[in-house]
Simulated assay, not measured.
Amino acid sequence: MPELPEVETTRQGVAPHCEGQTITEVTVRDGRLRWPVPDDLPERLQGQVVRSVERRAKYLLLQLDTGTVIVHLGMSGSLRVITDQSPAMKHDHVELQLANGRLLRFNDPRRFGCWLWAERPDQHPLLRDLGPEPLSEVFNGPWLHRQSRNKQTPVKSFIMDNHVVVGVGNIYANEALFKAGIHPRRKAGRISLDRYHLLAQAIRETLAAAILMGGTTLRDFVNSDGKPGYFAQSLLVYGRGGEACWECGRALKEIRMNNRSTVYCTRCQR
């Protein structure tokens, strides 16, 4: 599933082509996504100007004068700018024709994504209870420490909770915990403020580096220009179970937590 860096990479890729452009036509070829595309979405969008393309957690927000389109890529979705008028493919479900002649095309083979409408996106059920953005000033060690008090949940699950902080998916949780030297099974409520300072910084650095490199290469994800991300080449632990730790040389251990692959170093992470 595309994680925050992949979604941010998509935002950066499509925004320059869409912002300031009038939507001249809306085509919904198959509205049977995770939540049905509203029947009146084409009517709401046609003639509107895309004021900005923003991101909240893993959601892309197309800001218009009368409201906001909430887009989620789901497990296999991609959002691309089409400049050559190439014909739609089998799983191209939603398409916006822009005044500059370009198309914003949404492809989603598994149909777990969404295109929804909200007049007040901050009050929408998908967005209103989300935690802070990991690259914002609000997110820091003291925030994590306060949120973790008396929690018995493993710290890996804790930082993947979108009510605590958004966008720390499985890959980046593995990487950040390794950088901070924290065992993924350690109880969140038993971690000190000093160690949460390290973890918050590790989360920020990991996500920022992934965004800079274009995200992580995942089986079902391509960027808006059709090219895969390259952060996978820099992964320290994820996907490397049984290989040597690059810090101490001991074999990395791989386990399952909440049906997710979890890789860590038994010597470096405590």
Rank of each mutant, 00 (worst) to 15 (best):
H93T: 02
P125I: 13
L127C: 06
V94K: 03
H163T: 11
Y59V: 07
G77W: 04
K156V: 06
R128Q: 14
T83Q: 14
T83F: 09
V155K: 02
E119S: 12
R44V: 03
E95T: 06
Q97N: 11
A88L: 15
S52Y: 02
A118Q: 08
E43P: 07
D65S: 12
E54G: 06
Q147C: 13
A118N: 07
Q147I: 09
N100G: 14
L177M: 11
N162P: 07
G169K: 05
L41V: 01
T66V: 09
L177F: 11
P121M: 04
Q97E: 11
R110Y: 05
L61T: 03
I171N: 00
L130M: 09
L144H: 01
S78H: 11
E54R: 15
T68P: 01
N174R: 11
K90R: 15
S148K: 06
Q46S: 15
P132V: 12
L104H: 05
N100A: 06
T68A: 04
A99C: 13
L116W: 04
V94I: 11
L41K: 03
C114T: 13
M89G: 13
D65H: 10
V69K: 02
V155P: 00
P154I: 08
E119C: 08
E54V: 09
E54H: 08
T153R: 13
V165I: 11
G141T: 09
L130K: 10
R102I: 01
Q48E: 15
L73Y: 04
S157F: 14
R102H: 15
G167K: 10
C114K: 07
L104S: 05
D92P: 03
H163V: 04
R44M: 11
V53C: 01
N140V: 00
F106S: 00
R110F: 05
N107A: 12
W115E: 00
V168Q: 07
L64F: 08
Q152C: 07
L127E: 07
D92C: 10
V53Y: 00
V53M: 06
P125S: 11
V166I: 13
Y172I: 06
N174P: 04
R149D: 01
L144W: 01
V69Y: 03
F158M: 04
H163F: 09
Q46E: 15
A118S: 15
L45K: 02
R149A: 12
F178G: 02
G141D: 10
Q123H: 05
N107P: 00
I159Y: 01
G77P: 04
Q48K: 11
E119K: 14
R110I: 01
F139K: 00
I159M: 04
R146W: 08
L60I: 08
N100R: 14
Y172H: 13
P125D: 10
R102V: 03
L61R: 08
V50T: 07
D65R: 12
A176E: 02
C114F: 10
G131K: 06
L96N: 02
E43H: 15
E43W: 13
A88Q: 07
A99E: 14
